[in-house]
Design a protein around this nucleic acid. Structure first.
Lengths: 200, 200
DNA sequence: GTGCGGATGTGACAAGCGTCACCCCGGGGT
DNA sequence: ACCCCGGGGTGACGCTTGTCACATCCGCAC
């Protein structure tokens, strides 16, 4: 019997996935959580074999939970199930030692199989995404990322400077760097490109 | 017996919702479609009682399918199930004569009940969203919307002008109008605000 | 110490942006 | 005929952006 905990913020999807998994005779859904914090609590209380989690959730993200599980060396496999086919996310997930990374675009039938595979000690990584993840790495450094994120939210260079304790000139330098590295024409395009790749 | 067709682009969610609905003794999922066009074809072939559809899908969106059903006066109820709590979307959906508008944030148990309600001739609209939809209307006109959309994709005023056969000065005038109407500080913020409300 | 590299800042320049006042033109009302 | 109004355009103003060359400071290797 594979004992599963499910973390997913959209209630309807959570309920539906739970129904789906419970149809399998060898899988038991112990419980489910609508956000990162409660997922982490339930994880410690229920000690499931596998945690199936989304990435984008209020509070802790699925990636952060995976990191914690990894750091505490808990005997719990983590499988990420997400909308985001972003190489950067997969990379971070692998660094956090997850056993699976599936896309919500993949057929539902595959989920149970993936859980069985992971439970046996295997790994279930979306194949085409795995390719992309190795091909292009995030060219941005921390500062560029921070600045680009804020710029993408509509803040002007001087506002960003205040928030990060930088001069507005320096902010513009970082932005210019980021725009150049991404081959964009301006900050807006740069922001879109970076987001799309999961580099944020 | 309520005969349902399901349209949803994310395969895993589609499969899970299908499993969930099939658990109900009085609901039968006739089939499901991964995009707008095939949903429309299946709709005509299977003639279900209710179409349950997402909004964002490749090809036709759920809103466009609802409009078609409405225009052709088909005896099929449409229930939108979406992530987007955007007043503008709800408004457009209601104009298209849909019978239900549910959020994926709402509990999964409610879905079957909503379908039963709709099948009996009732309406199932997310209550708090319904409030918002009446409170604030889209202040933008067509030109402002077009221009803002392109600006949000990273295009400069002169590029937008070329695309829309306007002078770059006029484009900036429209942008300025939109920024003012939305109470934003610049085009980026204006774009974000408009998107968030579903005005695009 | 000397030197190098990374992080941050400065100043200047051209281009783009946001705002405003004002113009022209082509319908409708009346 | 008249005026008004909405769509589109112009030109000017000051500010912000994007770019680049150069300066400063700090830490670390040798």
């Amino acid at each position: 019997m594979i004992r599963v905990l499910l973390a997913e913020d959209q209630a309807m999807v959570r309920g539906a996935l739970s129904a789906l998994l419970n149809l399998e005779p060898d899988i038991e859904v112990l419980g489910s959580a609508p956000d990162g914090e409660s997922a982490w609590r339930e994880l410690q209380r229920l000690k499931p074999d596998v945690l199936v989690t989304d990435i984008e959730m209020p509070g802790l993200t699925g990636l952060e939970i995976a990191q914690r599980v990894h750091r505490h060396e808990l005997p719990i496999k983590v499988v990420i199930v997400t909308t985001f086919a972003r190489p950067g996310f997969l990379r971070r997930a692998l660094d956090a030692g997850v056993s699976g990374y599936l896309l919500k675009d993949a057929p539902a039938e595959g989920l149970a199989d993936a859980l069985r595979l992971v439970h046996r000690g295997g790994r279930a990584i979306d194949p085409q995404l795995a390719l992309e993840a190795w091909s292009d790495a995030d060219p941005l450094n921390d500062r560029e990322r921070q600045v680009l994120r804020l710029a993408g939210e509509g803040h002007a260079a001087s506002e960003i400077g205040t928030q990060l304790n930088l001069s507005h000139g320096t902010v513009r330098n970082y932005l210019s760097e980021a725009i150049g590295k991404l081959g964009a024409a301006n900050r807006i395009e740069a922001y879109r490109l970076a987001r799309q790749k999961g580099w944020l």
